[in-house]
Design a protein around this nucleic acid. Sequence first.
DNA 1: TGTTGTGAATGACTTCACAGCG
DNA 2: CGCTGTGAAGTCATTCACAACA
Lengths: 204, 204
Amino acid sequence: MPTHVPDIVIGRLPLYLRALEHLLKEGREITSSQELGERLGYSAAQIRKDLSFFGEFGKQGSGYRIGYLAQELRKILKVDREWPVVVVGVGDLGHALVRYAGFKPKGFRIVAAFDNDPAKIGQQVGSLVVQDSRLIPEEVKRLGVQIAIIATPASAAQEVADTLVAAGIRAIVNYAPISVKVPAGVRIQYVDPAVQLQRLTYYL
Amino acid sequence: MPTHVPDIVIGRLPLYLRALEHLLKEGREITSSQELGERLGYSAAQIRKDLSFFGEFGKQGSGYRIGYLAQELRKILKVDREWPVVVVGVGDLGHALVRYAGFKPKGFRIVAAFDNDPAKIGQQVGSLVVQDSRLIPEEVKRLGVQIAIIATPASAAQEVADTLVAAGIRAIVNYAPISVKVPAGVRIQYVDPAVQLQRLTYYL
DNA sequence: TGTTGTGAATGACTTCACAGCG
DNA sequence: CGCTGTGAAGTCATTCACAACA
């Protein structure tokens, strides 16, 4: 429905949702843009403006019903369902992501893990068995997966990304420390642990 | 020297540095804002403008000497040295971060790991032994650490952040799925694996 | 010629401020 | 009365476009 929503707004919505879920867990039922903003470090106006891209969710004078707004945000973000996700690269980081308990309650389930190291293929990780990377095309198609996490070394990331995209993947979170090229229409998010730290040292 | 540099510019510099290091590894000596931009998905003008906050690093007609520009960026970002870093929370994710090989070449070394779980305290992780979280204040001071990574559950993150800040930490990367309050002057970066995924589903 | 560095122009995002309504 | 939703204003970021120069 919204004509066009800036990426930067979409990027904040999961944070709003996360804060609402925490409030709910505290037993709260109503909140305000003011309170949300204080928790998250955004202005109240920012939050109201962001939400206004999608509709009217609050009540003048009282604020937002937390459960309702959370559910609306889940719908907007399409996390009112469970998305299957594959992980490629089962080193320490990939291993941790495959076992990460935080995905399930947020709408994601890791359904397959791949590696090209014969020593890792066949190993049990969480409830999954690591599969040969050569099976990515057929498994991604078979499982109907659209989302992948890359956790390989930098040297493998571009080739893995190409394979994933060819197999039908349309969204990638890349933990490998390199930028990869993907065709228009494929979204990608970067998480390089070292880059996160390097964004802080300037200020020290 | 620069009057004031927007955070968003600082946030891109580590990506420029990373791309330059990859180019160097490919044996290249010279690059251009054009080429860098194509690799990273930014406009050439963006890159030139960003660099112009800090000085003049290129040559008209030819471009940038890669090794030189990389070294200048390291100086600007203050990663032309090795920063000690502590990790709090040694679950799967913390474990992977403590052992992550990618920090060292980017200017960081994990010098201590803490957890409050008696089953984890005393365990060897990489070259470190997990210490009791109660030792954070004295260890952070003793080691002179200014940077911390939080990889605890959400429920512990605020208390851990408070302890870290009180101990002298001035920069935090928070992998816990919650926003924490820190006093002005303490910088914080968030990496919530589920949020990264939730930023993608909207577009599917 | 090719590419930088940079003011000027454009575009995008955030904040303001208040009408409107519960 | 308090808080939302939202145009308008203000601020910040990006792109343009070109002089300067190797």
